[in-house]
Design a protein around this nucleic acid. Structure first.
Lengths: 342, 342
DNA sequence: TCGCCATGCAGAAACGTGCCTGTCAACGTG
DNA sequence: CACGTTGACAGGCACGTTTCTGCATGGCGA
């Protein structure tokens, strides 16, 4: 390449990177020759020299061999999409990596930093990355004293309390919970908030838990919950498929929604706007979370100082639909709603 | 590192990579010291030296700034997940890259090869990658003479013809189509198959098309289709949200499904098993496609010879549910179905 | 005319591997 | 004892950048 343009390697580098003291004529000449030859500088060599790869990792916890968390899939998909977008907008590419895998993919990839989803206490991946001096930003408030660079999360406790109040205001007398038996922070915090709320209003907790990564177990658990002798007259489901599962279970037991059973479910899916009846959902705003996480990470990589805190709490949104309104509004043909763009 | 172990750089490299002629004692010693120091070989240097990065790209066409195709989102999410899994299982990591972006992310990432989703004819990304000598495997039969290394696709024509026959057998007299007005191969082939079928059976085509990347336009188009004077008594929707949109539209017009209107929709979503009524779906088997695409790509990267063709056709699956059966079976409480694992 | 500075470019080191070649000792073997 | 053979490592180059330093050249003021 340098030979083809009749200049030195240095001049090529300077011309393409806009550095050095070169007259515009030389710069143009070099660029033109590069264009003609289809020359692309080697990313590997650049990374080796500069120490920056332009790659950030997105680490997901694994159930079995599947690299993604299955249950929060719509959440995760939206979050990953937003993260990818945000990374690309700042010139970075995003690599999805599993927390554990047979091959040691980690050492094959040069990363500038990593996003970690819901890290466990003493997470070995995080501690290793921090030891290497890489910035780590977590989606989900880190448990214990995990030394992450920054984190982003919802206020799950407030969201659940608010939602339960909403159900109570709609006339619910006994609110049930469909939850997971995993130990992740989201499930723990949400369940704890539910129990706290029950204690506060003096209601006996009514809940069923199931392995949230098993797509079949949810329907069974929903059935179990509505089959109980102390059947709730309102249910909150923590996971995305719970809404349709609960609706199906309600139909099997001849329960009308919302007359006999109020329903809310945590989901990012738009299908709940078109179910019969439409189901009220709690959105965790995964797009905002994915964007925020990547922004914080890249800021840390590029040494941008944050005078503010390195914690960000993203507000949740309760999208109220027919399923949680005891006195449903007159149904009209409503115009399709524009999706929110955040 | 070499100094700490008291050996040469060569010995370290050989010890860690299992090469050279070293006694087990030395090998163990080196590995132990590496472990103690937390030493990780530089991925960038290895890539520079060997020319292999262990990274494969997944290129998605973009609508506006969003890096993913919106409409086929469930399809894409599943496909990307399977591709990531398959790559990781063979020691590769997967990077999601947009076909076009402001920053030139492409030249910042050293790729061993790329998967391209539904490339257009004369796709500039593909031709550039091929020029660089990188293997390219496409999801979707490449249009024209695009020089891809291999490709994987469904037989969209056969799938649509089969599905229309199914609807006709269920008693449909006039089948409508809800389709997109984009020029991608999937939409083109499916629409062409529909028109061909209509011609064969002597039915006037009844279809509405809309910009498939716009999540709102689908509901409007569904409404338009059912408002026509020549209202169809069966509809096939090409895109994932069409099922719920059509169901909602049918309710608005007081049409019972499946008594007054038969419904089939191409979707990977499991929610259609729990709608009222459950909707028959055509699955394109994105997991199998994602896996196959990555296997072919890595085979090409590693120089695995294929005696067979470098084209793979993945069979589709029509999941028949109540919405396309004129005489619905007695509804019973059915046990949750295990999801197929392919 | 001479020194001086700005301009325009080239040389060369360094990044950390992988791999090819070289060296040296120990070890049979005729 | 001379000599090939083998084991066990070390030396050194190359990969393709970036960047620091250095060397000409020419214009300009003193």
């Amino acid at each position: 390449m340098a030979a083809a343009a009749g200049v030195s390697i240095t001049t090529v580098s300077d011309a393409l990177n806009g550095k050095g003291r070169l007259p515009d004529a030389t710069r143009r000449h070099v660029r033109e020759v590069a264009e003609r030859l289809g020359y692309r500088p080697s990313a590997a060599a650049r990374t080796l020299r500069t120490g920056k790869s332009g790659l950030i990792g997105l680490t997901v916890t694994t159930y079995g061999n599947e690299p993604f968390t299955f249950t929060e899939f719509a959440y995760f998909a939206e979050m990953a999409r937003a993260a990818t977008s945000a990374a690309l907008a700042r010139g970075y590419a995003l690599v999805i990596l599993p927390a554990t895998s047979r091959h040691d993919v980690w050492s094959n990839v040069a990363l500038d930093g990593t996003v970690v989803i819901d890290p466990s206490d003493q997470d070995p991946v995080v501690t290793e990355l921090v030891r290497q001096g890489l910035p780590v930003v977590s989606d989900g408030r880190p448990a214990g004293t995990l030394p992450v660079t920054a984190w982003v999360d919802n206020d799950h406790r407030a969201a659940v309390l608010d939602l339960l109040d909403h159900l109570a205001a709609a006339g619910a007398r006994r609110i049930g919970l469909l939850t997971g038996n995993t130990t992740d922070t989201y499930t723990r915090l949400s369940t704890a908030a539910y129990l706290h709320w029950c204690e506060r209003v003096g209601q006996d907790p009514v809940y069923e838990s199931y392995p949230a990564h098993d797509p079949c177990a949810g329907a069974v658990a929903a059935d179990r919950l509505l089959a109980r002798p102390d059947r709730p007259d309102a249910v909150y489901g923590l996971f995305d498929p719970n809404g349709t599962d609960l609706l199906a279970a309600a139909r099997r037991y001849g329960l009308r929604v919302p007359e006999d059973l109020l329903l809310v479910c945590c989901s990012e899916s738009t299908v709940y706007a078109a179910t019969e009846p439409p189901i009220t959902t709690l959105s965790l705003k995964p797009r905002r979370i994915g964007t925020a996480v990547v922004q914080l990470l890249i800021d840390a990589i590029e040494g941008v100082e944050h005078d503010g805190p390195v914690e960000q709490v993203i507000p949740t949104e309760l999208i109220v639909r027919t399923s949680s309104q005891r006195r449903p509004p007159r149904t009209t043909v409503s115009a399709p709603r524009s999706p929110s763009r955040d």
